[in-house]
Simulated assay, not measured.
Amino acid sequence: MQIPFTEVPVLDVSALFDETGPGYHDAVHALGDAARHVGFMQIVGHGVDPALFDALLEHTKAFFALPDDQKRRVYIGNSTNHRGYVPPGEEVFAEGSYDTKEAFDLSIDLPADDPRYLAGNPLLGPNQWPDLPGFREAVTAWYDAVFALSRVLLRAFAVALGEPADRFDRHVTTPPSQLRLIHYPYDPDAEDRPGIGAHTDYECFTLLRPTAPGLEVLNSAGRWIDVPLIEDAFVVNIGDLLEIWSNGEFVATTHRVRKVSEERYSFPLFVNVDYDTVVEPLPRFVGDGRPARPRVIAGEHLFAQTAQSFHYLKDRLARGEVSLPDDARPLASFGRKPVSANSTR
Rank of each mutant, 00 (worst) to 15 (best):
P126D: 13
S261V: 01
F270L: 15
D33K: 13
S323Q: 12
H46E: 05
L218Q: 05
A138Y: 08
L118N: 02
R73H: 04
W224L: 03
Y24M: 03
Y75M: 05
L229W: 09
P111A: 10
A307E: 06
F168I: 03
H311P: 00
Q42D: 08
F53Y: 14
A34F: 04
P281G: 10
D232E: 13
S343K: 14
G96N: 08
G77Y: 08
E300Y: 03
P283K: 11
P194C: 09
K101A: 12
T100A: 12
P291F: 03
R116M: 10
L11K: 11
L57V: 06
V146G: 10
D144Y: 06
V235P: 00
Q2R: 14
R170C: 04
V38Q: 13
S333W: 08
A292K: 13
H37P: 00
V286F: 09
R36G: 00
D274M: 10
K314W: 03
D113C: 06
L118K: 14
T200R: 07
S220E: 14
T174M: 07
G222D: 07
R209H: 14
V236P: 01
I230Y: 07
P130N: 07
P130W: 11
D26M: 08
L123R: 05
D192C: 02
T254D: 07
E280F: 02
S107G: 15
E102A: 11
P188W: 13
E137M: 05
E216K: 15
V339M: 11
L57C: 10
D288G: 04
K71N: 02
G89C: 04
I196W: 00
E191K: 15
N272R: 14
G120Q: 02
H37D: 11
V44G: 09
T140P: 01
H311T: 06
A141T: 03
D315Q: 15
L324R: 11
A145L: 04
Y75D: 14
R116P: 03
P268S: 10
G23E: 14
F303V: 05
G299N: 10
S246Q: 05
P188K: 13
A94K: 11
R72T: 03
L229K: 06
V8L: 03
A165G: 08
L242M: 13
N81E: 12
D327E: 09
E203H: 09
N247R: 07
